[in-house]
Design a protein around this nucleic acid. Structure first.
Lengths: 148, 148
DNA sequence: ATAACATCTGGAGTGGGCTCCATGTCAAGA
DNA sequence: TCTTGACATGGAGCCCACTCCAGATGTTAT
C-alpha cells in the first residue's frame, strides 16, 4: 500500500505553467498578463502553493479570446463587463449574448468604415499611377520627337 | 468709375471660413483642428489679416482626408510624413505613393485580423443561440410531460 | 546553504492623442 | 467707443492601455 503515498497522482501536473511560458505563447508581456488579470479582463488565474500563477487551459482560453477581441478594437470595458457577467453564473447568459451582439455590431461598423478608407486609399494610389503613366507617355513622346 | 472702388471684388470672400464652421462641418473640435495643424497632420491654414484661420477648399480637403484615414487607424506619424513630402514638391511623388501603398497594406492586414475576430464573435454568439435552443427544447419537453 | 534567477505586489511612469486653460488679440453690434 | 464673444498661442492636464520599478518572496542548481 506504500506506493499509494509514494507515487504522485498521474492526473496532476508536477510543474506549474508559468507566466513566462504563457507570455511567450501569446506574445503578451508578463506585465500585460498581470495587468489583464488585475483589471478583470480575464478571471483570476489559479496559483501554486508559493503564490505563483499556474495557468490552466481555461486561463489560456480567456487570454486568447481577449487578445483576439482587443486586437480587433473591442473596447476593454465591454470585455471586463463580459467577464463580470460570466462570474455571476448562468443567470447572465442572455446579457452576455446581448453584450457580444452589441460589440459585434460595433466591430462590423468599424470594418465598414475601414473598407471605405481602403477604397479611398486605393483611389489615391491609382491617381498617382495615372500621374506616372502620363509622365511616361510624355517621355516616350519626347523620344519619338528626337528621331526625325 | 466710383463704383469700382465702392464694390468689393466679387471673386474674393467677404467673410472668412472660421474654425468654428469647419469644426461643425467635420465634427472635430477647434482644439483638435489646431492640434492637427500644429503637429503637421494638415498643412498650415491661411489666415485673415487679423491672424484668424480662414479655411479654404484645400484645407478642408486635407482635414477630410486625415479624418478618414485616422478613423481607419492609419498611424498619425505616417500621415505627418505624407504632408511633409507633399510640401517638398513633385520630387517626392514616388515616395508619397510608396507611403500610401505601405499604409494600404497595413490597413488591409488589420481588416483581415478584424474579419477573423468577427468570425470568432459570430461563432461565440451562435454557441449562445444553441444554448437557448437546448433550454427551450427542455422546457417544451417538460410541458409535454405535464400533459398526461 | 547559498547564489542566481523567476515571480509576486502595489504603485509610479510613459506615450499617444487629444483637451483644457490662462492670457491676450480681433471683430461686430449697440 | 465700449462691450461681448470668437479666436490665437503655449503649455499644462487628462485618459487609456500598458510598462517599469522597488522591494519582498519563491525556486532551482551547485
Amino acid at each position: 500500500m506504500l506506493y499509494f503515498f509514494l507515487n504522485k497522482p498521474a492526473s496532476k501536473e508536477v510543474t506549474a505553467v508559468t507566466i513566462a511560458e504563457v507570455s511567450r505563447k501569446y506574445e503578451l508581456s508578463p506585465d500585460t498578463l498581470r495587468y489583464y488579470e488585475r483589471i478583470g479582463l480575464i478571471p483570476p488565474v489559479p496559483r501554486t502553493k508559493g503564490g505563483f500563477r499556474d495557468y490552466n487551459e481555461e486561463s489560456c482560453g480567456w487570454i486568447e479570446l481577449m487578445k483576439c477581441l482587443r486586437a480587433a478594437g473591442v473596447h476593454i470595458d465591454a470585455l471586463i463587463e463580459y467577464v463580470k457577467l460570466f462570474h455571476q453564473g448562468s443567470e447572465t447568459i442572455e446579457a452576455r449574448k446581448a453584450l457580444l451582439l452589441e460589440q459585434r455590431e460595433l466591430l462590423a461598423a468599424r470594418m465598414e468604415e475601414m473598407r471605405q478608407s481602403l477604397e479611398r486609399l486605393d483611389h489615391k494610389i491609382a491617381t498617382y499611377d495615372q500621374h506616372f503613366a502620363e509622365k511616361e507617355r510624355q517621355l516616350r513622346q519626347a523620344q519619338t520627337d528626337e528621331i526625325p
